[in-house]
Structure formats: structure tokens, C-alpha cells
């Protein structure tokens, strides 16, 4: 579904991602873990074709780096972390923007009945159907991220890249959002690559883990076989002790 081969990229002279290779099969939810500055966000931006890179990226059979942007967007969607919105659109208009590559261009081009049906479906799948006429500037962070998730779905991609979409959200909304993504990924020919800051959330969401350090892959394995001890080494702190300590408060 998604193949990344010998991918390197960076900003200016500085190389941030160094010769990274991995594949994600349909149905998988891959979580990228690693300490701050290890290149997680850069990796996602490179896969989405937004940052120039060297190496090969294939998404649903499409060569991301050479294909036109519109074709790429039909295969890969990227959802970023919560940012403030300055310009006000209705929720419906915002989600319809996800259909950008599917709607014909022209002065009088309008969304087809199919586009409208897909948008309503995406609103329903993210629990935002009754918000559709609200202005996005009036929404809470949790609502806004659900709307952006709906827009990501409306793009009808095969691969969704999540770049810390749950930042600044309360636990309830974090779980809600990841649940919606899990539901989406369960359908045929779809996969997810996510960067989630919260290790607990990542471990409960992921089917596979990609552990990174200094722009290189340290481990790539299914969740079941993943050695949690590696996390402590890479993050440079005793995570197990911390988690156990936290758990004790609840007992």
C-alpha cells in the first residue's frame, strides 16, 4: 500500500531523514515513535510529497515524487495538528474542500451529487453532521479536529498521514479521534501512518510501530512483537518505571 525506499531529506544542508525504508500494508496502522527532533514530522511531510526528498515513495502504486499534486492527493492525505483558523467557513464548506481534487475546475464548476453524498458521509463518520452549518471559527478544539478529520476522509485517499492530530485535545477527544481513524482504516485498501506524541495513545492505537532516532529507523515491527524496553533506550528515560509509577496513583 505504502512503500518508502531509501528516503532521505532535510532542510538546506542539514539531513533530517537518513536512508529510511519501510512498507505499510493495507489495514495497518503504523505509529512512528521517537524523541523530539528525530524527524517524525519531516518524514510525514516527505511521504506526502510536500518536502523534496531523495529515494522512492510509492502510495497505492503511484510514484509520489513525480506524479502531479492532484494525483498524489487522491492517494495520500495529511492531517496536521490543531492550528487556529483565521478565516471562517461553515463546517460543510470546510469538509467539501477535501473534495478539491475530485471536483472539475472552472468558473461554474460545482460539486456533484456524489461529492455531496461523500461529504455528508464523512460528517456522519466523524460525528459532526449536526455541526455542518456552524462556522469553524466558533468550534472547540475537539470539534474542529473532528471537522478536519472529516475533510481528510473526504479526500478519499488510501493512505492517511496523521501529524500529531490529538495535540491540545482532552483525553476524551483524543480517544474519539483515534477511534474514528481506526474505523476508517478497517475498510478495504486503506492504511494509516501516524505520529502521536502520547506514547500510551500510540501504543493502544497502532498495529505496527516504527521507532526512530536521529533520522534513522531503530526498529519496525508489529505491535505484538515490539520490545517496549527499546523505548526507554531511545527516549533516554526509564519509561517503564514512569508508567508503573503513574499507574500506582490509580490503584
Amino acid at each position: 500500500m505504502l512503500t518508502v525506499q531509501n528516503l532521505s531529506c532535510g532542510y538546506g544542508q542539514q539531513e533530517v531523514i537518513k536512508d529510511v525504508s519501510f512498507t505499510v500494508e493495507a489495514g495497518q496502522k503504523l505509529c512512528v515513535l521517537g524523541p523530539n527532533g528525530c524527524g517524525k514530522t519531516t518524514l510525514l511531510r516527505a511521504i506526502a510529497g510536500i518536502l523534496p526528498s531523495t529515494g522512492t515513495i510509492l502510495a497505492g502504486g503511484l510514484a509520489v515524487k513525480t506524479a502531479p499534486r492532484k494525483q498524489v492527493a487522491k492517494k495520500i492525505a495529511l492531517m496536521s495538528q490543531l492550528t487556529s483558523v483565521y478565516f471562517s467557513y461553515t463546517v460543510y464548506q470546510t469538509v467539501m474542500m477535501g473534495r478539491y481534487t475530485h471536483i472539475k475546475q472552472g468558473l461554474f464548476a460545482t460539486p456533484s451529487p456524489k461529492d455531496k453524498a461523500i461529504v455528508l458521509n464523512c460528517l456522519a463518520k466523524t460525528g459532526t453532521l449536526d455541526l455542518q452549518d456552524r462556522q469553524i471559527t466558533e468550534l472547540s478544539g475537539g470539534q474542529l479536529q473532528r471537522v478536519f478529520l472529516a475533510r481528510t476522509f473526504a479526500q478519499s485517499p488510501q493512505v492517511i498521514l496523521l501529524d500529531e492530530p490529538t495535540n491540545h485535545l482532552d483525553l476524551k477527544y483524543q480517544l474519539e479521534l483515534t477511534d474514528y481513524v481506526t474505523e476508517w482504516a478497517a475498510e478495504e485498501n486503506r492504511c494509516v501512518v501516524g505520529v502521536l506524541h502520547d506514547i500510551n495513545l500510540a501504543l493502544s492505537f497502532a498495529s505496527h510501530i516504527l521507532l526512530m532516532q536521529n533520522g534513522e529507523v531503530v526498529a519496525h515491527s508489529p505491535m505484538a512483537g515490539f520490545e517496549l524496553e527499546l523505548l526507554s533506550q531511545v527516549y533516554g528515560t526509564n519509561i517503564k518505571a514512569y508508567m508503573q509509577h503513574t499507574l500506582k496513583r490509580w490503584e
Partner: peptide, 28 residues
């Protein structure tokens, strides 16, 4: 004015920032 109206959807996308606009398929 007509041309900008024709580019309305591109302009809509651009108000969400460069990364989002490109990810949605805009040749930014």
C-alpha cells in the same frame, strides 16, 4: 475578478496554510 472567482476553491484552500493546501492537492 472573473479569474479570481474561477480560482475561488484554490484561494479557499490557501487560507488554511501552505501545508494543508498542498496536502489537499493544490499545486501551491
Amino acid at each position: 475578478t472573473l479569474l479570481f472567482t474561477r480560482y475561488a476553491r484554490e484561494l479557499d484552500l490557501m487560507t488554511f496554510g501552505e501545508e494543508q493546501a498542498m496536502a489537499a492537492g493544490l499545486n501551491l
